[in-house]
Write a protein that binds this DNA or RNA. Structure first.
Length: 874
RNA sequence: GCGGGCGUGAUGGAAUGGUAGACAUACCGGACUUAAAAUCCGGAGGCGCAAGCCGUGCGGGUUCGAGUCCCGCCGCCCGUACCA
């Protein structure tokens, strides 16, 4: 018997062509079956797909194919997140137009994705840089503007004074511009914002309605939104010390109970009070200027050394008119949060303590931890932020922090300062409005005009789309729209006079905040066809990287609310189910200081020691750490190479098999080879058995009773049951392990199968092999299809129903329980499957191990968990 | 800095609070082969001749029983609002 080796290079394109011609994966909204929308985060068209894409899309494809087999009407589209900075960088470096660069990248990535054999509906494809798409985004923007969801305000950007351009946070390295090396300055610009804060409370409370999201993502969003209930509290400023026009200073605090521990106030460098004082205090002006040379990212601000400047202004303690504390300007206070001013309580906040120790401010503990002596309790270098009882706090002494909060709030709400209440209760959110203005070319133009008479005017809807000009130059840095000779000049739709176009384009997060809705009617004249969008949405299963846990997902959640308000959707949440996959990582290699790609490395293993040499030069190579695949470290494996040599099924199978899908997976050559061997193994198993099987659907399975045949049936049904549950829970690696087990069993029990084997065995073998083929079909669609044909079946396995599990085949007559003495396993106990607790107890006490352990005595305790364990405590 | 996560054999990992290491990779031995590859069979957490003891990043705790739950550390990863 000779078997032909499975050749994916010939088989895969052949079936892909046939699926394509049959329109197998094109979705019709009115097709039968309950709808199911599965979506993977669409890729940025960098030019080549990477292993992370293979993993992401393989997972989504398993879900899509599985749900189709379960009878659902599945929507599984693909598109391109095509605006953004890399295209502009390429334009500057290689003098290629961003559009040309982007569309060429899309063309090559589309070809690569198609070689993966994904069950995507390509007829719905679009790129966010298509005029057709951003036209509808401009319509949405105007609707948002009309409903008060878009507005302008001043905010800060990173400014490179040499390149005269705005920098993204990632373009700022150690406070300097990445190209010019110049010290970055903060600069204030008037920019466009979307009012995500209107929905802060709803975005928070609706997290509870998302049970199919990972807890960690919901928690991250909750903390990001950052709802806190506190007190807005005004401190009088001592008359001799305060500047003109600043009688008091409002701070926000969630801990008014610790007010007697206050030792300073601190305001943000941008706070009006700081600005006023800086007008007459050059040293403060210099301090503020220094703070502004830091970049705008929260990370940069918070990791910088905490510094303050003592203004000389003193603030009067709201609970004690004889007590004043100094007012500082501090680099760690954020103008965006609360009032841009805080009070410092060093004893109970680590950051305040660090600040107080540095500037030799008093540290007065006011919360006494349980079991501490109030006369001896002292704070040294660690602040105490736990619970306790208030002390050193006058009328608050003895209260809990919660009661202290209430007492202070009640007292200060009633007190007045300058004719108004000293304090008021306030709910504050950490979440800020979404700044969408970008001073860049390659993005969706914001469709408004600036008219000298009418001010800011929305572009008339009939004048949309506002398209990007094609004749641009990237010779100079900065926004090409700004210096375009004619593009800006237009007329005002309101007065007909001369007007200038807005040159800001939109953040690319806007593009990705509604693409899932556009897929439901990708060619509609309006942003959505509401009836169709409502029928398909929400996305039932969304799959993508954990790095999007907050921003992209939160913006999308905001967008469906805004689109609901403006009548484009009737939907509460965009993504019903969410799954966050891990990254694909790989070992790194270095030849001296130069990174070396894996393709140029030969690994040897001797006496358990791994060593490496460079293929092209023969020089020894240092094996480095396992890191996220990245161009800079060259530790990338090109999926095209893998698909070219092993085939798409092998790449998909390996990406699904080796690690839990939410964790990182390490790409290894050996793992890929192992997956390829398994492909061949399945092929051999099916091909060798096929000639000896009964004709399709001729096998009668009901009266099978022979031991061998029954064992085959049980194995197949047990596996089908397990794999079904695994895929439902997206446990692909476990599904793969079960399929391995089934193939191991079948390879053994079908080894000698021939035409003269028992009829029962041959019938069971056909059933088992068909189950196997259907189970692997979502993961390795080409191999499954080829096996399906070899088994004598017509048509597409992709159109076949998922295997039906016979529950009767899942049960065994007896079970073997581990038998523990004092929690340690000392034996096994085999009992009938339906044995009662009492029967198991009796059987356990009768065993030799237990009798030895008891030594004639009585057990102290007997724990029986039927189907699980028996534990005898002696 | 802050928020979130992860940590189990040589390696990737499995394990509703219930037999730690399923399944796979690498490795070792055997069969087949002139030989190799492929394939098939077998072995294997550590220590020990064995009975057994020890083992899930480190230190505590809860429990009849902890990889799993709680507290405190360490290390790595993600996010930190203009990377996508």
């Amino acid at each position: 018997m000779t078997t032909e080796r499975y050749n994916p290079r010939a088989v895969e394109p052949r079936w892909q062509k046939q699926w394509d011609e049959a329109g197998l994966y094109e979705t019709k909204t009115d097709a039968p079956g309950e709808k199911y929308y599965v979506l993977e985060m669409f890729p940025y068209p960098s030019g080549r797909i990477h292993m992370g894409h293979v993993r992401n899309y393989a997972m989504g494809d398993v879900v899509a194919r599985y749900k189709r087999a379960k009878g659902f009407n599945v929507l599984h589209p693909m598109g391109w997140d095509a605006f953004g900075m890399p295209a502009e960088n390429a334009a500057m470096q290689n003098k290629v137009h961003p559009a040309k660069w982007t569309y060429e990248n899309i063309a090559s990535m589309r070809a690569q994705l198609k070689s993966m054999g994904l069950s995507l509906d390509w007829s719905r494809e679009f790129a966010t840089c298509d005029v057709d798409y951003y036209h509808r985004q401009q319509m949405l923007f105007l609707d948002f503007l009309d409903s008060g969801l878009a507005y302008r305000k001043k905010s800060k950007v990173n400014w490179d004074p040499v390149d005269m351009t705005v920098l993204a946070n990632e373009q700022v390295e150690d406070g300097r511009g990445w190209r010019s090396g110049a010290l970055v300055e903060q600069r204030e610009l008037t920019q466009w914002f979307l009012k995500i804060t209107d929905y802060a409370d709803d975005l928070l409370s609706a997290l509870d309605e998302l049970p199919n999201w990972p807890d960690k993502v919901r928690l991250m969003q909750k903390n990001w939104i950052g709802k806190s209930e506190g007190l807005m509290l005004r401190w009088a400023l001592a008359p001799q010390t305060r500047p003109e026009g600043h009688e008091d200073l409002a701070i926000f605090t969630t801990r008014p109970d610790t007010l007697y521990g206050a030792s300073f106030l601190a305001v943000a460098p941008d706070h009006p009070l700081a600005q006023t004082i800086a007008g007459t205090d050059p040293a403060l002006a210099e301090f503020i200027a220094e703070c502004r040379r830091a970049g705008t990212s929260a990370e940069a601000l918070e990791t910088a050394e905490k510094k303050g400047y003592r203004t000389g202004v003193e603030a009067v303690h709201p609970l004690d008119p004889d007590w004043t504390v100094p007012v500082y300007v501090a680099n760690f206070v954020l103008m965006d949060y609360g009032t841009g001013a805080v009070f410092g309580c060093p004893a109970h906040d680590q950051r305040d303590l660090d600040f107080a120790l540095k500037y030799e401010l008093p540290v007065r503990p006011v919360v006494l931890p349980p079991k501490e002596d109030p006369t001896a309790f002292t704070i040294y270098s660690d602040a105490y932020d736990g619970d306790g009882v208030l002390f050193n706090s006058d009328f608050l002494d003895g209260l809990s922090p919660e009661d202290g909060f209430e007492a202070v709030a009640a007292k200060l709400e009633a007190a007045t300062l300058g004719g108004e209440a000293v304090a008021e209760r306030k709910v504050n959110f950490r979440l800020r409005d979404w700044g969408i203005s970008r001073q860049r070319y390659w993005g969706c133009p914001i469709p408004v005009l600036h008219c000298e008479t009418c001010g800011v005017v929305p572009e008339a809807r009939e004048n949309l789309p506002v398209t990007l000009p094609e004749d641009i130059d990237f010779e100079k840095p900065g926004n090409p729209l700004d210096r375009h000779p004619t593009w800006r000049k237009t007329s005002c739709p309101k007065c007909g006079g001369e007007a200038l176009r807005e040159t800001d384009t939109m953040d690319t997060f806007v593009d990705s905040s509604w693409y899932f809705a556009r897929f439901t009617a990708p060619r509609a004249e309006t942003p959505t066809e509401p009836a169709i969008a409502n029928a398909w949405l929400a996305v039932d299963q969304y799959i993508g990287g954990i790095e999007h846990a907050i921003l992209h997902l939160l913006y999308s959640r905001f967008f469906v609310r805004a689109m609901k308000k403006t009548g484009h959707l009737d939907l509460d949440e965009p993504f019903k189910g969410l799954f966050t996959q891990g990254m694909v990582v790989h070992e790194t290699y270095k030849d001296g200081r130069e990174w070396v790609p894996p393709a140029d490395v030969v690994i040897r293993e001797e006496n358990g020691e791994r060593s490496a040499t460079r293929l092209s030069t023969g020089t020894p190579i240092t094996i480095g750490g396992i890191e996220k695949m990245s161009k800079s470290k060259k530790n990338v494996v090109d999926p095209e190479d893998i698909i070219g040599s092993y085939g798409a099924d092998t790449a998909r199978w390996f990406m699904l098999s080796d690690s839990p899908p939410d964790r990182d997976v390490i790409w290894t050559e050996a793992g890929a080879e192992g997956a390829f061997r398994f492909v061949q193994r399945v092929w051999r198993l099916v091909q060798e058995a096929a000639p000896h099987l009964p004709a399709p659907s001729k096998a009668s399975l009901a009266e099978i009773s022979g031991e061998t045949a029954l064992a085959i049936r049980k194995a197949a049904h047990r596996t089908a049951h397990g794999v079904t549950g695994d895929i439902e829970r997206l446990g692909f690696n476990k599904a793969v392990a079960r399929v391995h087990e089934l193939v191991n069993i079948l390879a053994g029990s079908l080894a000698g199968l021939s035409a003269s084997s028992e009829t029962e065995t041959r019938a069971a073998a056909r059933e088992a092999l068909e189950v196997l083929v259907k189970l692997i079909a979502p993961m390795m669609p080409h191999l499954a299809q080829e096996c399906w044909t070899v088994l004598g079946r017509d048509g597409f396995v992709a159109s076949e129903a998922w295997p039906q599990v016979e529950d009767g085949l899942l049960r065994d007559d007896s079970v073997t329980l581990p038998l523990q003495i004092n929690g340690k396993k000392r034996g096994d106990l085999t009992v009938p499957a339906e044995a009662s607790k009492a029967e198991i107890e009796e059987a356990a006490l009768a065993t030799q191990v237990v009798r030895d352990a008891l030594n004639g005595g009585q057990p102290k305790r007997l724990v029986v968990v039927p189907g699980r364990i028996v534990n005898v405590v002696v």
